[in-house]
């Protein structure tokens, strides 16, 4: 192909040829979102057992990663992908980038369309405990309470158009209230001063009152209070933040791995998915990626007792998100950022 020749030529011309990737005998290309992290010895162990070299490629957050998979469908850039969650699985399946795989073994959460669940977690509101204690305010008991003057200018969330937790929170609202009620709620929330940040990091580190900002309520993860203890500077016995699990304000996220249609190294790719579900990885991922394991044999890390696990939350409806997600984001942008209806 012309373009395939053009690039190497240009690279030779610019003196970069020695850096071009060399063909490895067996290399498994794993596409992941940016949050993927496992201890190095565990990865080395897999390489040793399977005899392939892992080439981990980070492709932005989960939403951007799935779109990159879809765009390169004709020439897959990976053999296996990790990080496709229940809000994206419908889109990925509809675009035909997934080769179904069903491993043996039980899981506490599952995904449709031949994507193998690996871990799960919750997107929910987090509060700054010290702020609420200092200001003597009661905690809101419903999402609607957030639209009242008591909670004016207290909430920050990442933009659903540029952040997966933002989109997850919006999806939870819509699925619980129905579209019309949900967007009426967002209109009121806009008038009550909700702040929209670009991504989770911006919201958590520059707007959340626990860090640089002034807002004591932030859209984050249910495991964040546990992570606050794990990554605290002085040994904490109690988390400085807490979950605020409100009805319609909790999104259950199930993340999974999938074989990529047209990818190579099928045997190793299946082995990798099985490995992600193995007990050592399931135990490790809890404190590297801050998700709950789907393998019931994996023990829950003690630090997770600081995370108040939301109960009775139904997994999100993947089909509805795949079909309507884009319209929700467009309407949310219209209501919250453009000030429309």
């Amino acid at each position: 192909m012309f373009t395939q020749r053009l690039l190497p030529l240009a690279l030779v011309a610019t003196g970069l040829a020695p850096l071009a990737p060399l063909a490895h005998a067996a290399e498994l290309r794993v596409l992941t979102h940016d949050s993927f992290e496992l201890p190095k010895p565990l990865i080395a162990q897999f390489e040793k057992q399977s005899g392939v070299k892992l080439s981990i490629i980070k492709a932005g957050d989960a939403g951007a990663m799935v779109n990159k998979l879809i765009l390169t469908k004709a020439n897959p850039i990976a053999d296996v992908a990790y990080g496709i969650d229940n809000s994206l699985v419908g889109k990925a399946a509809a675009a035909g980038v997934i080769e179904p795989y069903a491993p043996a073994g039980k899981a506490v959460q599952n995904l449709p369309n031949g994507v193998v669940s690996v871990d799960y977690g919750y997107v929910t509101l987090n509060i700054d405990k010290a702020w609420f204690a200092k200001h003597g305010k009661p905690l809101p008991t419903s999402l609607d309470a957030l639209t009242t003057p008591v909670y004016k200018d207290l909430l920050v969330m990442p933009n659903p158009a540029t952040s997966s937790p933002g989109l997850a929170f919006l999806s939870a609202n819509v699925q619980s209230m129905g579209e019309d009620k949900a967007f009426a709620f967002w209109g009121k929330l806009r008038d009550n001063g909700v702040k929209v940040a670009k991504g989770w990091s911006e919201a958590y580190y520059t707007d959340f009152s626990r860090n640089g900002g002034s807002r004591p309520i932030v859209v984050s993860y249910a495991t964040s209070p546990a992570a606050e203890v794990f990554y605290s500077k002085t040994k904490l016995t109690e988390s400085p933040t807490a979950n605020l699990n409100l009805p319609g304000g909790v999104f259950q996220q199930v993340e999974g791995a999938a074989l990529i249609k047209g990818g190579g190294e099928r045997v190793a790719a299946r082995q990798f998915i099985d490995y992600l579900r193995s007990v050592p990885v399931q135990q490790a991922l809890q404190t590297t990626m801050w998700m709950y394991p789907v393998n019931p044999a994996a023990a829950i890390d003690p630090v997770f007792r600081h995370a108040d696990k939301p109960a009775g939350v139904k997994p999100a409806d993947s089909q509805a998100i795949a079909a309507r997600g884009q319209q929700w984001v467009a309407r949310w942008t219209r209501v919250v950022l453009k000030g429309g209806q």
């Binding site: 373009t3 690039l7 990737p21 390169t72 897959p76 850039i77």
Partner: peptide
């Protein structure tokens, strides 16, 4: 990504 799918995860492209 679209144009050079097999080169996208190469260091050469990142450095370029």
């Amino acid at each position: 990504l679209l144009l050079y799918p097999s080169w996208t995860a190469s260091l050469a492209l990142l450095l370029s």
